[in-house]
Amino acid sequence: MAKIRIKDIAEQAGVSVGTVDRVLHNRGEVAEETKNKILEIAKGNNYQPNLIARALTSKKQSVFASLLPTPTEEDIFWQKPLNGINDAAEELEQFQVFVEKFFFEHYNEQDFIKQTEAILKLKPSGVVFAPIFTKESIEFTRKLDKIGIPYVFVESKLENSNYLAYVGSDGYNGGRVAANLIDFGIPTDGDILVINLAKNLENVLHLNQRTQGFLSYFMDKGKNEGLKITIEIPTSKSELIKEKLNHVLMQNKNIKAIFTTGSKVYKIARYLEANKLNDMILVGFDPIDQNIHYLNKGSINFLIGQHPYQQGFKAVKKLFEHVLLQHEINKDEYLPVDIINNECFKLYQS
């Protein structure tokens, strides 16, 4: 059945196209009897307005906000979702949609709070953000809910919040994938070291989820029976990493594999290479250039990719579809994870 047009409704109602347009878009005065007749015909024929065309012709600006850790040489991973946000924003400029970008220091909860306060002051039409800090992110979502601003999560999600959508991988299962890879390559009695580069793991949502997933794999199906030793290193400074690893490896001579829950796995690879620990299995996240370098050299065995560009790009598009096009949104869009080794690393070089 062909879609009914405004022209068709006008013919059936015996009125002009302009009259139908005024009724359907609630512009101008139309006699009550005529208005009811037009609405009845539209409803009976399941008329759907062309919302994209309406958005194109609208002169009203919509401003979204994004909140991510600041992309730096140390945290270059965050440049990829930012690139996705930027490209989506460029596409949507024709609809008078703009994205104000906000950034916070990765390990600084107070800076995160400061940036959320700036966003609330802006009162955007929607927010895309990475809920890195659990406690502070919960408070932010409560404030967004109170004033009716929809929000989309990337990288990880707060399950019990009133979020519009989530775009990203499943952190818990990402940890299980890492565990499965290590389980194939490690002796049954070999110990495994889990490294979190975070100063408060319980409050860093995505790293905590990956750690829980990793450990759960060995509790219910893993072949490895060795110790699972978990450490937190509060910063990614090379000297501190060296100090912590020197200590733990001296105390635990049977460690045969290392799982790093974040994207700075290259920092661990650098340490292993400098100390000639060539037989240690090393698995981490994200095919950023520094990680690819060590993957190519064999110091990293596997990387788990999670499509960060698509996370940023799709998150902005979901806000647009909800706010301007009034589309029903798929709440959870889980992106596939990639298992990357040195046989396929060239696919991920920038």
Rank of each mutant, 00 (worst) to 15 (best):
E109M: 11
E11L: 11
L215C: 11
K253N: 05
A31I: 10
K228M: 14
V23E: 11
H247N: 10
E117Q: 07
L207R: 06
K318N: 08
E321N: 12
D286M: 09
N301D: 12
V337N: 13
G174E: 14
I268G: 01
N254R: 13
I229S: 01
E93M: 02
G190Q: 00
P71K: 03
F320L: 11
Q115F: 03
R22W: 10
N196T: 08
V316Q: 02
L68Q: 04
L120A: 04
F102G: 06
T70W: 06
N196V: 07
S236R: 15
E139Y: 01
M1D: 11
F285Q: 13
Y348Q: 03
L303Q: 06
I41N: 11
Q48P: 09
F133M: 06
V99K: 03
T134V: 12
I281Q: 13
V194E: 06
F133R: 04
V17T: 07
I4R: 02
A2C: 09
R142A: 14
D286T: 10
N86S: 09
D170T: 09
K256R: 15
F285L: 13
S137G: 07
A315L: 08
I281R: 08
R270Q: 15
L24M: 08
N46L: 09
Y217D: 09
P69G: 04
L67V: 02
L215P: 15
G14F: 01
E74G: 11
K331C: 09
S169L: 09
E93Q: 09
G190C: 00
T260K: 03
L295V: 09
I300N: 03
I233Y: 00
Q61G: 12
V204W: 03
V265M: 00
V23M: 09
L164D: 05
F214H: 06
F153V: 03
L227Y: 10
H327Q: 15
I192T: 01
T141A: 06
P287K: 00
E202D: 15
D87N: 13
E74I: 15
D286C: 10
E93K: 11
N341A: 06
R22H: 11
L207I: 07
Q251K: 15
I340G: 13
K242M: 10
G298L: 13
M280D: 08
Q115C: 06
I52Q: 12
A65P: 06
N246R: 06
E232M: 13
T141N: 10
K221G: 08
E29C: 09
K80N: 13
I132Q: 14
K264C: 11
Y47I: 08
E273V: 13
N252G: 00
H106M: 10
E232H: 10
N246I: 02
Y266R: 07
I292E: 06
Q209G: 03
H206L: 04
S263H: 06
S169V: 11
Y47S: 05
K244D: 01
I340E: 03
K276C: 02
S350G: 13
K123E: 15
F345L: 14
F104Y: 15
K317S: 05
E243K: 14
L122Y: 06
I304R: 00
N50Y: 01
Y271K: 03
T188K: 00
N301A: 01
V128T: 05
K244Q: 05
S62C: 02
L120F: 03
Q94G: 01
D111G: 01
